[in-house]
């Protein structure tokens, strides 16, 4: 198998290397890809949408359909992970508790699980030592990570960033809590049900803004239609429409990242993680 693979790879590689002869030379400003449509987008981005970051303008306005269905693909990936992995059966092993004041670990047989109290804290079966520094540093860091993520979403018009990046960073802040504490803490902050509702809400916001444009008498995802309810001119309305769409994308991406992590790291039980 290795030899066949190597032969195929060498042949395909030689073919591709031969075909590079016809490419324009690397970084050529007059290459065919850069002269027609891209020039139009660069010239018209500010007069038509008032968004200086051309990538955001093209992503959410000129190619709005594309981004909407990419968001749906991410939503479907989250659902697929959930359907593949989620187990609703409770793990019937024994459980471990830690006495908060002294740090003594208790091993409790099943059927005798005590009520939740402030003196005892449930810990994972794959026991890891209690680490004060890691827990507290991550807890202090998480709000700043979230603030940065909100900045990335909201400032995507003027600097690199936008819904996709900000959503991933927001999801990563929750994953950070889940890794540094345990999964129960993270699920206490944002439960599985909330995550799945948010996954759908993001796509709904995106397509809802599109449908609102139809109701206001214009084409799907033509944000200029929103100028009547936002009380601005058409160009500002496009800018605000792009912002609304980015928020929807950010919510979906955040929820999908959290959902995939929770299902992967707990093998679908969603009780204890890494």
């Amino acid at each position: 198998m290795k030899a066949i693979g190597l032969i195929i790879v060498v042949l395909v590689g030689a073919l591709l290397l031969y075909s590079t002869e016809d490419f324009p030379s690397w970084g050529d400003p007059a290459s065919p890809a850069s002269v027609h449509v891209a020039a139009h987008h660069l010239k018209k981005a500010i007069p038509e949408t008032s968004v200086p970051n051309v990538v955001t303008a093209v992503l959410a306005d000129y190619r709005g359909y594309d981004t909407m269905f990419e968001t749906s693909v991410i939503f479907c990936a989250g659902l697929g992970c959930f359907v593949l992995l989620r187990l609703f059966k409770k793990r019937d092993d024994d459980s471990y508790y830690r006495h908060v004041a002294t740090g003594i670990t208790l091993h409790i047989k099943k059927d005798k699980i005590p009520d939740a109290s402030s003196e005892f804290e449930r810990i994972d079966t794959l026991w890891t030592p209690y680490d004060l520094i890691v827990k507290n540093v991550c807890r202090i860091l998480a709000p700043f990570v979230q603030l940065f993520a909100l900045y990335v979403i909201a400032h995507g018009h003027h600097s690199p960033g936008g819904g996709f990046q900000g959503g991933v960073i927001l999801g990563a802040s929750v994953i950070l809590i889940a890794i540094s504490h345990d999964m129960r803490t993270a699920l206490g902050r944002i439960s599985e049900k909330t995550v799945h509702i948010l996954m759908a809400v993001g796509v709904l916001i995106y397509s809802g803004i599109g449908a609102l444009c139809i109701l206001m008498g214009r084409n799907f995802l033509d944000y200029a239609a929103l100028s009547r309810i936002l009380f601005t001119d058409k160009i500002e309305a496009r800018s605000l429409g792009i912002f609304g769409v980015e928020v929807g994308v950010g919510i979906t991406v955040m929820a999908v990242m959290i959902s995939i992590y929770n299902n992967l790291s707990s093998e679908g039980r969603q009780d204890e993680g890494l």
């Binding site: 994953i175 790291s265 093998e267």
Partner: peptide, 12 residues
Amino acid sequence: VSTVFFVAAVFR
């Protein structure tokens, strides 16, 4: 995030 997913899968 991709590295985190990878490590989680390897762990499981």
